[in-house]
């Protein structure tokens, strides 16, 4: 289940854009700030952003879609990133990820029915000496086994 679309305040969008226009290469900071505010880069912001930066909406779309981070709809209340990269694989990361997805009845990028957790793949969290690793929102967890994963999921309300 996706969360309801965020309430978009045109004034706030204009302010976010305005706050970054003095930067060299302001677009990524703007997109991050919008996502921070709304949980995604809302469609309603595309027009104002494109106009402010003097680029076409098609170009803007091209940029947004290039990067894995930017969403067009908000994620669940929490985002669980599970590392899929080699060091985590070397200590059972693949099985852990599969078991977690099965348990939640999700595919990658899916959100639990109660809207609590979206599960995303990530390629390395820099925790390769204490793998397998996951990150719940901004909190890192290392040497994750089934029990630790259950604790993380419980904390997230999955």
């Amino acid at each position: 289940m996706a969360l309801p679309d965020p309430v978009i305040d045109e004034g706030e969008i204009a302010r976010i854009v305005e706050d970054h226009l003095h930067l060299e290469g302001p677009l990524l900071p703007i997109l991050h700030a919008l996502q921070e505010a709304y949980g995604c880069v809302p469609a309603a912001s595309h027009g104002p952003v494109a106009t402010a930066l003097n680029i076409t909406r098609a170009e803007l779309h091209g940029v947004i879609s290039f990067y894995h981070d930017f969403r067009d709809a908000p994620a669940g209340r929490h985002v669980l990133k599970i590392c899929r990269a080699e060091a985590c694989q070397s200590v059972g990361g693949t099985a852990l990820a599969e078991a977690t997805l099965t348990k939640l009845g999700l595919d990658w990028h899916g959100t639990t029915a109660n809207g609590a957790v979206t599960v995303e793949p990530v390629y390395c969290l820099g925790l390769c000496a204490c793998a397998p690793a996951v990150m719940l929102d901004d909190r890192v967890v290392g040497r994750v086994d089934a029990a630790r994963m259950d604790a993380v999921l419980a904390e997230a309300g999955a």
């Binding site: 290469g25 677009l27 990524l28 991050h32 940029v63 894995h68």
Partner: peptide, 22 residues
């Protein structure tokens, strides 16, 4: 400046494009 989850942006010219907002 914060990246946006693209491995290839570690390649220096891709990184520069990204930094420029492309």
């Amino acid at each position: 400046r914060v990246g946006a989850g693209a491995y290839v942006c570690g390649e220096e010219t891709s990184l520069l494009n990204s930094l420029e907002g492309k």
